[in-house]
Design a protein around this nucleic acid. Structure first.
Lengths: 143, 143
DNA sequence: GTACTTGCAAATAATTTGCAAATAT
DNA sequence: ATATTTGCAAATTATTTGCAAGTAC
C-alpha cells in the first residue's frame, strides 16, 4: 500500500533517542525482523538472529521484542492458533494482512471504520477507544 | 446489539446433535461460560466450574473449550497481552467489544467492511478471505 | 456392554526472573 | 567508570498427552 519500508538505521536511531544502548544482540534482532516479510515466533527469530550474532540467547530475543514493542516497532500477530508471532511494524496505527498459506504479512493503514465504530458505540453505550483488525487471505503468489 | 442470549440448553442440544455426550463436566463449563459477561482464561474458568461440578479437572476444561470452539460456541479473545482468554459466542460471524477496565465483553455482528476490504484487496493483490476485528474501550459502567 | 470421557501424573512448550559477567557509552 | 545489557540456569506458567478408571448412552 505504497509504504516506504522501515530501515534498520531508523530503528537504531529511535533506540538511541530513547536512551537505550545499541548492542549487537539488538542489531541482530532488528535485522532479522526487518528482512522478514512475514511473522515469526520468538524462537524462530532467535534461530535466525544467531546467524548475525552467534552468541545471542533466546532470552535476549524476548527482551528485545518487548523493548521494540514498547517503542512501537514490533507487533504481535494474532491467528486462530495463537498470538505468539511477532512482525515488524512502522509506527502508528496499522494492521496486518496475512497469507494463510505462506504466512507473508503485509501492513496496511488507513482503515476507515469510523462510521461503523460510531454505530457500535451508539448501540452498545461503550466508548470505543481502539480496535484490532487483522485480515487473513491468500497473497498474490499463493492464489 | 439486540441479541437474544445463548442458553445452556441450546449448546447442550448442539453437542448432542453432533454426537457428543452430555456430561457433568461439560455442563459445568458451559454454564460458567454463559453466566460470564466477560472473558476468562482456562484456569479461571476451571476455578469457577468447580463450583458446579467439584470433581472437574483443568484438563477437561481445556478439552471442553476445544470442543466448544470447534462447534463455534467459544472464541478466543485477543488482547495486547495475549490470546488466552475465552468467551462464549453465538454461532456465525461475530466480534467482541471489550471493556479495558472491567473486561466486560459484548458481542456484535454485522460489521460492514466490504468496501474497505475490496479496497485492500485491490491494492495488495491479496484475496481477503477472513478478518478478525476486536474493539476495545470502556463499557457504560466504567465510563 | 461399549465407546466416549475423564482425571491424574507426567511430558512439553512458552515465558520470566535472579544474578554475576560482559559491554556500550 | 558506570549503568545497562547479556547469557545462563532455574523458576514459572501454559498446554498437551498417555492411560487406566469412570460414565453416558
Amino acid at each position: 500500500m505504497g509504504m516506504s519500508s522501515l530501515t534498520e538505521e531508523q530503528v537504531i536511531e529511535a533506540l538511541g533517542q530513547a536512551g537505550y544502548r545499541i548492542t549487537q544482540s539488538r542489531r541482530a534482532v532488528i535485522r532479522v525482523l526487518l528482512e522478514d516479510n512475514g511473522f515469526a515466533s520468538p524462537s524462530e527469530l532467535w534461530e535466525r538472529a544467531v546467524e548475525y550474532y552467534p552468541g545471542i540467547g533466546l532470552v535476549t530475543v524476548y527482551r528485545t521484542l518487548d523493548l521494540l514493542s514498547r517503542l512501537g516497532f514490533v507487533r504481535r500477530i494474532h491467528t486462530d492458533e495463537g498470538c505468539h508471532g511477532r512482525a515488524s511494524t512502522r509506527l502508528g496505527h496499522r494492521h496486518h494482512l496475512i497469507c494463510r498459506q505462506c504466512g507473508a504479512a503485509v501492513e496496511f493503514e488507513g482503515c476507515d471504520l469510523s462510521i461503523f465504530l460510531a454505530r457500535v458505540s451508539g448501540e452498545t453505550g461503550y466508548l470505543v477507544e481502539e480496535h484490532m483488525l487483522e485480515l487473513i487471505g491468500l497473497c498474490p503468489e499463493c492464489r
